[in-house]
Amino acid sequence: MMLSRVAEHFYWFGHYIERAENTARIILAESEMILDVPDVSHVRWRTLIETCGQAHTFDALDIGDDEASVLGFLLTDTRNPGSILQTVLFARENLRVIRDRVPRELSEALLRLRDHVKNKGAKSLQRSAARSAYLRGVIDLCQMFRGAVEGSMSRGPEYQFMRLGRMLERADMTTRVMDVRYDKLLPDTADNLAGLDEIQWVSALNSLSAFQMYRREVRGPVRALDVIEFLLHNHAFPRSLQFTLAASRDAAGLLPTPGPVCKALDSALTKIEGLSVASLSRDGDKLHKAIDNLQIAINGVHGSIHEAYFKPQ
């Protein structure tokens, strides 16, 4: 027996932890990439906001898009529902509801993560060394949390809802990384410096911790279409769209009356498989449209989960 509300809390719990970790990875990769860019005037910190899907909230606050403003917004600003601090606080609130259904280790790991992100002033994180240590700490503690989940949690509906939340959050992030990266690399950037293109795609892979795995699969220079192909279709890499949605399909299949959700996932998977990267070539519009379509499909999956399990009957 599982209440719809409790199921929803597990689902969002999965989302929040994944989002905190992904946000940390993206900022870390971007910060490191920037060290390689010869002229920092080319750096657009705002890209990070777009990758995190928070442009709307950010613009409404009108706080300027320099480094300090952007990072403050993404790390510690509780007005940003996607900031690392706020996601962890959301997860903490969720834990109050689901605590009796999760192993104690998992609660403890989350409380450690909360302690790590709490009471960190935006100022103290402006120094890049401190920031980097902070972000690595977030990633480590999220990994520890996941270790507790994998190692000690029964594979009941609680686990499956959490996994669905995690995988869909991940899928979302991967689509946004492709989309935003591609946007910034279109050839019309006349002042584009030679080699910068490759640096940025390496950074894109890094932000999904995909660089090493990509290297093992694809040889030669890092090229946009190869990266897109890898992030869309690779069956083995755990952050590719193909993988995240197939894993979601597995999780959904283990829930009661899984029909509608599985159908939505099958349709999203069919779309991914049908997408030929070669045909997109370097036509930005085509790729944008294709990614838009995938995001619509992912939203459809989310909608079907909501409809099937969370919605007031």
């Binding site: 599982m2 209440l3 719809s4 829930l255 007031p312 009957q313």
Partner: peptide, 9 residues
């Protein structure tokens, strides 16, 4: 009734 993932109970 309560709302559960298996429907109303």
């Amino acid at each position: 009734f309560m709302r559960t993932i298996d429907g109303l109970r």
